[in-house]
Design a protein around this nucleic acid. Structure first.
Lengths: 138, 138
DNA sequence: AATTGGGCTTCCAGTCACTGGAAGGTCAAG
DNA sequence: CTTGACCTTCCAGTGACTGGAAGCCCAATT
């Protein structure tokens, strides 16, 4: 297959496949006499593996590690699990951050009238001003 | 104040302050005869506003909008609320994606032995293979 | 007055993972 | 032998910084 077909079948854009080749994530493809890249079923499987890994949020670097492990018959599943563990903790970290942002933002959002008046708790908070209720509590 | 002091007091690194100036997020700072940037209390407040906005996950572009609104005495709080709404929905989208990744990953993680054997459900899944239980159910 | 050292300046490059676009070559069908 | 889709390479841009090099500024010692 040409790059267009393997792109369509793997879900990885042709442009991205070339990019993956350029950074060494995948082996340089064979070429036709005219210079076209050609791919086989094995290449397709590799690209599908990459696509699924990326969809799970693994970084390209991590995908490289997973690919190497996948192609290593003598691997230890512990090594795969370790990559997954790192990624899981990154996801948890990111989710924690988002959750915190969301809570603050949601609170501000609901306290903002959202009308034609300029007064706005969102801006007040961003400007570092104390809340009315906080001041009343002092 | 010099850039180092305002950086320290606002929490925005000096390098980042110069960057914000270069992209037009903040006005070019005044300069001393020797070419040093100088900042006043107002500039500090602006940088603190920016820092707080960034901490809530607003993009630099959104921060620019919020800054403009903040400095506009005739603003409508509805406009501020609209920026917050967009950002909130972006956060929700991102959290949804992470949640889905996490669920899949956690499942795979717990099904992987994580020992010296090569057999690994994580790799099997990434390779697009059916699960044992799924195959048994067919 | 000269020196030291820390802080400041600009500019370029790198990060991550692509993505867009231009200029031009290849290929199969008609 | 032409058309048009598909392919090629290369360069530039995205977002939001961050690192580093080369060199100037300034206040405090000696």
């Amino acid at each position: 297959m040409n790059i267009g077909e393997v792109a369509q079948r793997s879900g990885v854009p042709a442009k991205t496949i070339r990019y993956y080749e350029s950074i060494g994530l995948i082996q340089p493809a064979e070429r036709t006499a005219g210079g076209y890249r050609i791919y086989n079923g094995r290449d397709l499987k590799t690209l599908q593996f990459i696509q699924r890994s990326r969809n799970l949020g693994f970084s390209v670097k991590q995908v490289g590690e997973l690919l190497a492990l996948w192609q290593d018959r003598g691997r230890n599943s512990a090594d795969v699990k370790a990559v997954a563990r790192v990624h899981l903790s990154e996801i948890d970290k990111r989710m924690g951050e988002l959750k915190e942002m969301r809570a603050t933002l949601e609170d501000l959002f609901h306290r903002c009238h959202g009308d034609e008046r300029p007064d706005c708790p969102i801006l007040n908070d961003l400007a570092g001003e104390e809340r009315e209720v906080d001041r009343a509590a002092e």
